[in-house]
């Protein structure tokens, strides 16, 4: 049987079996909902009526544990940025003093910056269109993205300054 009270606060009842992988070693702790959520740093925990195993501390895409991200400052795949968003924002704030992308350039070439932003928005729309099987829309979006790619290539080969 598990312990009655949360291992962190010792006040609230333990409701979650909290599994953490640190340097490849599995640690099991029994925590209350509040403390478990704090530990998970913004990752949604799946709760059920009974004690629940929580594996939210490992990126489902690549298997990188959050503990590894924190110690190495490295992530395993682009999805880690979504899965661990809260924790990564904290780390970036400490590391870089900021979490916001300042763009690749100054205002002189804002045209390119805009094109890149638009391109990435269109790509998200394209994904959605494909998911919804709206192929007509997807084809249009693909053409639009290709046009932007051409434009970016042209700008790259013919810098304006």
């Amino acid at each position: 049987m598990h312990k009655k009270y949360c291992e962190i606060c010792g006040k609230r009842p333990a409701e979650i079996e909290f599994i953490e992988i640190v340097n490849g070693i599995k640690h099991k702790r029994f925590l209350c909902r509040v403390c478990a959520e704090n530990e998970a740093n913004g990752i949604k925990l799946v709760l059920s009526d009974d004690i629940k195993v929580d594996s939210g501390l490992v990126c489902p895409e690549c298997g990188t544990p959050l503990a590894y991200v924190k110690t190495s400052l490295k992530v395993g795949c682009p999805s880690c940025y979504n899965v661990f968003e809260g924790a990564i924002k904290d780390l970036l704030k400490k590391l870089q003093g900021s979490t916001s992308f300042a763009g690749m350039d100054d205002l002189k070439s804002s045209e390119e910056k805009d094109l890149i932003i638009i391109k990435h928005r269109l790509k998200k729309e394209l994904e959605r269109a494909v998911e919804n099987e709206d192929f007509e829309k997807a084809a249009k979006l693909r053409d639009e993205i290709n046009r932007i790619n051409q434009k970016l290539k042209w700008l790259g080969l013919n810098p304006s300054e």
Partner: peptide
């Protein structure tokens, strides 16, 4: 210049929040 050219040739991992996503923070 290489950054500009490559942006037109590849689909790079990118997010509106963080910019280009890399293995090291």
């Amino acid at each position: 210049q290489r950054i500009r050219t490559m942006e037109g040739e590849y689909n790079f991992s990118y997010s509106d929040t963080f910019g280009y996503l890399t293995s090291s923070l």
